[in-house]
Amino acid sequence: MPITAGRASGREVWAVMSALAAGALLTACASSEPEAGAGAQSGTGTAPKGSPSSVASGQPSAQESPVSFESLEDLFDTVDERLDCPKQDRGEHFFMVDGAPETGLPGRQCGTGVLMSWSDDPAVVEEAVQLLHSGGPVPMAAGNEWFVADVTEVLQTQSGEAVVSLPESTDLESLAHELGGTFTAG
């Protein structure tokens, strides 16, 4: 399904996430070996406002104590403050993972290429993280109960078109540092 300028509907986001899940299942059936070369993606965004960063991939930040969020909206507000999400693309989406409510694990968009979610159940969050990583390299900032993922590359691969609505910054490495989380390059 092509991704175009403007607000992605819940159905479009659901279709993309379903395609990612289907691709993950096919990949898992074909091989149990991790893909060689699935690794770092160079940063394309600018650093969040006023935040130098150097977080090693997958390592917790030693600079900041972990930020605790009370809700998905709390996470979104914090991310929006740092990344400056586009006003037109702040939709909701749901991750269909085990342990989530029947409607799925709620999430939010920060543009069409940056997704986030929060839950007070770290196991549900981890399952959503694994779902995202199974679709291809996904740079991600994460804590125990939240994640913020840049799925731009996966969406471009799936649709063949550029994702045009991104936040002012996509520097998730700096975001992880500021929030006391971890950063993985993909």
Rank of each mutant, 00 (worst) to 15 (best):
D171V: 05
W118D: 03
A149V: 10
M96R: 12
G143I: 07
G37I: 04
E92S: 06
L105T: 09
C29L: 15
G181A: 02
M96Y: 03
A30T: 07
M140F: 10
Q63T: 09
F76C: 06
V55I: 13
Q158H: 11
L75I: 09
G107R: 01
Q109C: 14
S42I: 10
A15N: 13
L75C: 10
Q130G: 00
G39N: 04
E126C: 00
K87M: 00
A24C: 05
E145D: 12
V151M: 06
A141G: 06
E70K: 14
A36S: 12
C29D: 09
L175I: 05
A185E: 13
G10Q: 08
M1E: 12
E127P: 00
G104Y: 11
E73T: 05
G143Q: 07
G23K: 13
A30F: 01
E64Y: 08
V138F: 03
P66F: 09
F69Q: 13
G58K: 05
L155Q: 10
E145K: 13
R82G: 01
G113N: 11
S68I: 08
A28D: 04
T103L: 08
D89N: 13
D84V: 13
A142M: 07
Q156K: 12
V129K: 15
L26W: 15
H177T: 13
L105M: 10
S134M: 05
W14Y: 11
P66D: 09
L75A: 12
P122Y: 04
W118S: 03
A62W: 03
I3A: 09
T182W: 01
V16C: 05
S18W: 14
S31K: 04
G186I: 11
T184G: 05
E35F: 07
T46L: 09
A15R: 15
H93W: 07
G58L: 06
F183T: 05
L20M: 15
V148F: 10
V55T: 14
F76V: 12
D171G: 15
L20H: 07
R82D: 03
Q156W: 00
H177W: 10
Q59A: 15
R82K: 14
A8W: 03
Q158K: 09
P48G: 03
G160V: 13
V163T: 10
A47R: 15
L132R: 05
A149W: 13
D80F: 06
V55W: 00
S159G: 10
A36N: 03
S18Q: 15
D171L: 13
G113M: 06
E92C: 00
G111V: 11
S65D: 07
D77W: 09
A141Y: 04
S174W: 02
G6S: 04
L20Y: 05
S119M: 00
E161C: 02
A28Y: 03
P66I: 09
P101I: 02
H133D: 14
R7G: 00
G50L: 02
A24Y: 02
G111H: 05
G186N: 11
H133G: 06
A100E: 01
R90C: 01
P167R: 04
